[in-house]
Design a protein around this nucleic acid. Structure first.
Length: 461
DNA sequence: GCATGATCATGC
DNA sequence: GCATGATCATGC
């Protein structure tokens, strides 16, 4: 039987969920309690399987055992591996109170030090009562992760103390993020202690990449494909943050050409490979060829290698993954892929042409200021507007090249929309046909960062 | 020389 | 076969 005061008992009881759906695990219970199709997966699990009322207390769900129950959706890759469908959202950040806390006695740590995780396979076509529960495990943070999480928590707290709660962004931190919670509506704005300006409600969350790491750990997948930057986590305690450690590894190579760096590191990389610069970056960080950077993967960091012309302008604009027109217009800004990208942490590696050599100029961790995110949202808004009105093609030239209504580079300081496809025939369906051409599908496009924005706001600053 | 449309190359 | 990161080509 379930003993709610014992961690072992709770975990054992939870483990029986594996392979079942909510309906199978507690079908009669759900009917008995008059389930109305309301509530989310987690609430139903708490109420009908574990038999307690969901609360929003500062205590963990099972307070005697110190365990916080969390459920979260999985997606499945083509190769059958599981990945997190989204970040794991934890408790709401109470701006008015947290600035008084120390990490060790914080509301975050009191509630989330020991998690019990229930991962279910999400499926758009199914009712949530029919989602299959695939992974169940408890989770406590390894000490090297905890050092980074504590540092993240302090980064968030510092921003609140500085009266900048309204400028918080997920990209500020590595594993523990401050993600928006609730709608953008006025009611989800909160007071902050050191500034009159209201701030969006946010919650602590574990980044999607970090949740992937938990999943890989639970399902005991091999970790050889990952290499750590930080071999001795205890140095994080002292003076250096992970950012400082990473940058210190690059500093000796500033002003050196890619070829010189390669030589110094005793490497013979294939210079024609598209992954040449990515390989060089990883080698500078001390990784073996083909390894992924564990800390960067956990932190969802987007690594971008930029080649600058001699006038400091990147040779190319920066592309992002293509979007599907149909998905684009049915996704809210808050849940959109583009907002997710804009709130990420980036790691830029700048090389610059000097004659025919590419010289390492500098590296930079960066994330977009909130004011710029608002400015880039205008591009997203215009795109939604165009696609949902069927305003795609503006003009077709004699030789068949089309001009579109999509947001151009000249219209916005930060971002624009351009094709990103195999060729013009590589398309996605349109939600409604194009007014001019009657086309029902159109060349794949994506959002791009303007090269001039990268120069002015990321390289030069 | 830049803006915009179009496409390539690699790896999974 | 396709996503992703990167690059090419044309016209103004």
């Amino acid at each position: 039987m379930l003993d709610v005061t014992s961690a072992d008992s709770i975990i054992k009881f939870a483990n029986k969920l594996k392979g079942l759906t909510l309906k199978q695990a507690c079908g009669n219970e759900i009917e008995k309690h008059g389930y109305q199709g309301k509530g989310n997966f987690g609430q139903i699990l708490e109420k009908f399987y574990f038999g307690y009322e969901p609360n929003s207390e500062s205590q963990p769900d099972f307070k005697e055992a110190g365990i916080e129950l969390k459920s979260s959706p999985l997606k499945i890759l083509r190769n059958g591996e599981f990945r997190a469908k989204e970040r794991l959202v934890l408790n709401i950040i109470n701006y008015i109170e947290v600035y008084k806390e120390e990490f060790e006695n914080s509301s975050f740590w009191k509630k989330n030090a020991h998690l019990l995780l229930v991962f279910y396979l999400h499926d758009n076509d199914l009712d949530l009562l029919d989602y299959n529960i695939r992974l169940v495990n408890d989770w406590q943070y390894p000490s090297e992760d905890l050092r980074i999480i504590k540092h993240d928590w302090e980064t968030i707290n510092k921003k609140i103390k500085d009266g900048k709660a309204h400028e918080l962004s997920e990209g500020d931190t590595f594993y523990l993020g401050a993600c928006t919670k609730g709608s953008t509506a006025l009611k989800s704005f909160r007071n902050q202690p050191f500034n009159e300006e209201k701030a969006k409600q946010r919650a602590y969350s574990l980044k999607q990449g970090y949740v992937n790491h938990i999943i890989a750990n639970i399902s005991q997948e091999e970790t050889e494909t990952y290499g750590k930057i930080i071999e001795r986590p205890e140095i994080l305690d002292a003076v250096q943050s992970i950012e400082e450690i990473v940058i210190s590894k690059f500093l000796p190579f500033y002003g050196k050409s890619a070829k010189e760096i390669e030589k110094y590191l005793g490497l013979e990389l294939n210079q024609k490979a598209k992954s040449y610069f990515a390989n060089l970056t990883n080698a500078i960080l001390g990784l073996k060829l083909g390894q992924k950077i564990e800390e960067f993967e956990k932190a969802d960091i987007q690594v971008k290698t930029i080649r600058l012309s001699e006038n400091n302008l990147p040779k190319e604009d920066i592309s992002f993954p293509t979007f599907e027109f149909q998905e684009l217009i049915k996704t809210d800004w808050e849940d959109s892929d583009f907002k997710n990208i804009l709130e990420s942490k980036f790691f830029f590696v700048f090389y610059q042409y000097e004659n025919d050599d590419l010289i390492l100029k500098k590296v930079r961790f960066w994330n977009m200021p909130q004011s710029d995110i608002s400015e880039a949202k205008i591009v997203w808004d215009k795109m939604i507007e165009a696609v949902s009105r069927g305003l795609i093609v503006r003009e077709v030239s004699d030789i068949g090249i089309r001009k579109t209504y999509f947001p151009k580079k000249t219209e916005n300081r930060i971002s624009h929309v351009r094709p990103h496809a195999r060729n013009a025939a590589d398309t996605f369906m349109l939600p409604i046909p194009d007014k001019l051409t009657k086309l029902t599908e159109y060349t794949k496009h994506c959002f791009w960062f303007n090269a001039s924005y990268v120069r002015d706001e990321i390289f030069m600053k």
